[in-house]
């Protein structure tokens, strides 16, 4: 038996909006520690890892570990029927072939339940080791989204370089080229506006902008984003989800032939 009650139901709506275009089908894994998902896009270039910790739910009951295969397009259709202020409860029976989403309006005067069929998904789980990254950049998520959007109008790929001078985003295409440099700044009044660069070693990696732009659909989940980079490793683009967890996107770099 599984019963997870999330008071801020809009978080789940936002999570689905952030990942449904990247991944079609995914297994949601439920355990004592939380509600999680790991899934790759169909080309195995990008991976999303979601964690909603059990202590972030108002009520969390998960009698045994459960893996529920869901079509994210269909799940998103159902969650769109929840109001932004609604409390969302996810319910499932052990060994059942469906999951129920229950939506309660804040004043409790409207209660809906939507039952969705589960599916069997052969999941390919990647073991991602804990790594010390060469450079970690924390910046406003809206700024990162803006840069990715702007640069994708010029080119298809971006070179992200971190040095002691700051983080540089470069692209080039048929019409020309562009560079955006963000320097470390410290905002006294608002930590969310800060750009903070921790660098042990300069690092420069090339990525497809199409994927980064897809990741920025998670911008509504967090005011800040963290980019963790090491030479010859996928970048980690992380959005913290207030008080409850995180959504991490991994993107394999372009490799020089």
């Amino acid at each position: 038996m599984l019963e997870l009650r999330l008071v801020q139901g809009s978080l789940l709506k936002k999570v689905l909006d952030a990942i449904k275009d990247l991944v079609t089908d995914a297994n949601f894994d439920c355990s004592e520690s939380g509600f999680s998902l790991q899934a790759m896009d169909s080309s195995h270039v990008a991976l999303v890892a979601l964690l909603l910790r059990s202590d972030g739910f108002e009520h969390y009951r998960c009698d045994r570990n459960l893996s529920m295969g869901m079509n994210l397009t269909n799940m998103s259709k159902m969650l769109k029927c929840a109001g932004n202020d609604d409390i969302i409860t996810i319910k499932a029976d052990d060994g059942g072939d469906s999951v129920t989403f229950m939506f309660e309006s804040p004043s409790q005067d409207k209660v809906s339940d939507f039952e969705m069929k589960l599916m069997d998904i052969d999941s390919e789980h990647l073991g991602i080791p804990e790594t010390e990254y060469h450079a970690i950049v924390k910046m406003p998520s809206a700024e990162f989204a803006r840069i990715c959007r702007d640069l994708s109008t010029i080119g298809d790929t971006v070179v992200i370089s971190v040095s002691k001078d700051g983080v540089k985003f470069s692209t080039s295409g048929d019409i020309g080229s562009a560079n955006v440099v963000c320097r470390q700044n410290n905002s006294v009044d608002n930590k969310d506006n800060e750009t903070v660069i921790e660098m042990n070693e300069p690092v420069s990696l090339t990525f497809a902008l199409r994927y980064l732009n897809s990741f920025t659909k998670a911008t509504t989940l967090s005011n800040t984003v963290t980019l963790s980079m090491s030479k010859e490793l996928p970048v980690v683009v992380e959005y913290k989800i207030a008080e409850i967890g995180h959504i991490r996107f991994y993107l394999a770099p372009k490799i020089e032939d």
Binding site: M40, S43, H44, V45, A46, L47, E124, H125, L126, G127, I128, P129, T157, T206, A208, E232, L233, P234, Y250, A252, P253, K254, I255, E256, D257
Partner: peptide, 14 residues
């Protein structure tokens, strides 16, 4: 010239 890396080249399938 560069080519797109795949995640399996960096992480192990489990």
């Amino acid at each position: 010239k560069s080519s797109q890396g795949r995640l399996e080249s960096f992480f192990q399938l489990s």
